[in-house]
């Protein structure tokens, strides 16, 4: 589903965020990406949806070379990959429901579909009572759940979550993780960058450990720390 061949990423300011990364993630896997702040987790996510281009190497998502694909193909790639951004990227002028439905509206879906799927996603993350609220009226955790709902609303084949529990209390965190497990069981490949050791250790899923842009550990049923 996802293959990285000898991928390096050097930002224009000279920072090396990823170095010679080789990685293969099969369809249906649930993968934790761990590593200290600045290790390159978000950068890895950005390469997968071509938000950034690799400086060298090859990134293949669902059979397509991400860096070489035509510009017109990029939207189709991004529709297959739902992303929970670390900074949420919510629109302050839109309500919770509008933010969630946005992913469907701008990909040309019928208003009826948008309404139906938005309701489903709202219920999934437990935000139905907040649907008419604006992001600034929400707690950090509610904003995070809005971002999660927007990533899930289009039923993506791959879900990338960048620290989706960063602002959540333990109870809500577990609810979100249970939701992710369910989504994963329904066939969605899941990639989750996290600093939450408790969750990683409890789930015993595959763990990829990044350190200064390089993979230093990749374990089938790993723990947060080696």
């Amino acid at each position: 589903m996802i293959t990285l061949d000898d991928v390096s990423k050097r930002y224009p300011n000279g920072t090396f965020a990823l170095r010679d990364v080789d990685l293969r993630i099969d369809a249906g896997e649930f993968v934790f990406v761990v590593g200290s702040s600045g290790a390159g987790k978000s950068t890895l996510n950005r390469l997968l949806i071509r938000e950034e281009m690799p400086s060298s190497g090859r990134v293949v998502v669902d059979g397509q070379d991400v860096a070489r694909m035509k510009r017109s193909q990029v939207p189709h790639l991004r529709r297959k990959v739902g992303v929970v951004f670390q900074d949420f990227k919510l629109l302050q002028t839109k309500t919770v429901a509008q933010n969630i439905g946005f992913a469907l509206v701008v990909t040309g879906h019928h208003p009826d579909v948008v309404r139906e799927e938005t309701d489903r996603a709202l219920a999934l993350v437990g935000l139905t009572p907040r649907r008419q609220h604006f992001p600034r009226e929400l707690s950090g955790g509610e904003q995070q759940r809005t971002a999660i709902a927007r990533a899930l609303v289009s039923r993506p084949r791959i879900l990338i979550a960048d620290e989706p529990t960063g602002n959540l209390d333990p109870v809500t965190s577990w609810e979100i993780i249970k939701l992710f497990v369910r989504v994963n069981e329904l066939g969605t490949t899941l990639l989750m960058a996290t600093h939450n050791a408790e969750i990683v250790n409890a789930l015993r899923r595959r763990v990829i450990h990044l350190d200064q842009g390089a993979i230093v550990r990749d374990e089938r049923e790993g723990l947060y720390a080696a």
């Binding site: 510009r71 017109s72 939207p75 991004r78 529709r79 629109l91 701008v106 927007r150």
Partner: peptide
């Protein structure tokens, strides 16, 4: 920016 990240086409 968000439109493009969630898969809107350039024409959209």
């Amino acid at each position: 920016e968000i439109m493009k990240l969630v898969g809107a086409t350039d024409w959209f």
